[in-house]
Design a binder for these strands. Structure first.
Lengths: 228, 228
DNA sequence: CGCATGATTGACAGCAGTCAAGATGTGTGG
DNA sequence: CCACACATCTTGACTGCTGTCAATCATGCG
């Protein structure tokens, strides 16, 4: 565990900031704790500030009227969320919920704008952050709109297993992965089961081992495969 | 028709800039013309700069391997595109094509960064621009993932007809609208025909009149309707 | 007029969602 | 440490929306 300043240094948004600037950020930020399952903000709430996740896990998501959920992104430690609405001066376009006991640093809107005005480094970091989000969203749109579920699952598994020796340790519930991939738990379950049966992967609970990465890659890019 | 500087003033990205700054931008920018249907850049191309649409229409889109297309956004005059990849220093994540004869101002990557460094106003404008894009993408993801095609079409028609006396003048091909809404021309056609038959809208080519906005709104938000 | 492009319609197929039941896993309190 | 309760995951049967393929119709332009 780090002290707060050491933590801030590791946050993309506050990279390359001098000591006194970091201290100032800590002064104006407010620490809040949320329990597992607790709502941090709901779509439509006025956006009063931005959030930096100090510890825990958070998901940002959209809900339809009939209760279906689409996860927009999972926030990990050091991640920032709620920033878009703050810039636009509009209500939050999505909701955020703690997936486990979570501590966040909350920076009020006006204080955050002061920071931006006085420090071009933060502006540049923010631009990089937003660009990264946009790229992720482009990828998500592409995934949901142009790929079938088998392709989505293959792509996801390969992405997570990258540089990890073909081992995927799902750190989220499968139902939430389903929601992120734009599908439902039943369908995800069926796809994974089929992959196990055809020898593409091995699965023990939340631990998945990719046993045939080449074929999985072929499925991911949409080539017809005899394995499904 | 405006002269170039008058044009730049109307571009969101260059709002509130002094005369000499605008002049500088014009100096470093390069004018390029594309014919209808011509490719401006393709997904995977190195991102060498950002584009400002001076005149014409441009679509930014993703293609899947088997040829399906998802439109990410339509760019109108004064619109900016290609900026995300420039910030990330990565290849373009999507492709851009002129939908009609188009003139663009191209600002090379390095020059653009010079501008950003020297003028905090541009940075702030850029932050607003990227935030707006993110919001649009959230909406698009929501649309594609959580709504059926009838809902998508209803929402779109109501959005476009807003403050326009319930008249929608599609300024794009229906096939491209279909691609933007995450579906195909056949399905869009069927949905529109059904709406005509149930008296929700009247349609003459690309001109659509909403004759029953209340019921259309009900469909848009997903309430069951007897009209479909 | 005739070709090209886009829009529409029809018949059909299939992927993925719904509903419901059962299996598995996890955590808590006795 | 066990047992029970609850959450999550899995499986099955079924439905239906939407995509595919193909033919026809409408429109516009040289």
């Amino acid at each position: 565990m780090f002290d707060d300043e050491t933590f801030l240094k590791k946050v993309l948004l506050f990279k390359n900031l001098p000591h006194d600037q970091l201290k100032k950020i800590l002064e104006i930020s407010e620490k809040k704790v949320f329990r597992k399952g607790q709502t941090i903000f709901t779509e439509g709430d006025p956006a009063d500030g931005i959030y930096v996740l100090r510890e825990g896990k958070v998901k940002v998501f959209k809900l339809s009227l009939d209760g279906k959920e689409q996860v927009l992104h999972f926030i990990g430690e050091g991640g920032v969320f709620g920033e878009v609405a703050v810039f636009l001066g509009e209500p939050f376009p999505a909701s955020a919920e703690a997936q486990s006991e979570s501590t966040v640093l909350f920076i009020p809107r006006s204080s955050f704008f002061d920071l931006l005005k006085n420090d071009p480094t933060i502006s540049m970091n923010m631009l990089a952050l937003l660009s990264l989000r946009l790229k992720e969203f482009v990828h998500l749109i592409d995934t949901i709109s142009l790929k079938d579920v088998s392709q989505r699952v293959s792509t996801y598994l390969l992405f997570i297993a990258e540089k990890k020796d073909n081992i995927v340790d799902l750190r989220i519930k499968k139902s939430e992965l389903a929601s992120f991939l734009g599908t439902i738990p039943e369908t995800l379950s069926r796809v994974l089961t089929k992959m196990v049966k055809t020898g593409l992967i091995k699965m023990e609970g939340a631990r998945i081992e990719i046993t045939n990465p080449e074929e999985l890659k072929r499925i991911a890019i949409g080539e017809k495969s005899l394995f499904l």
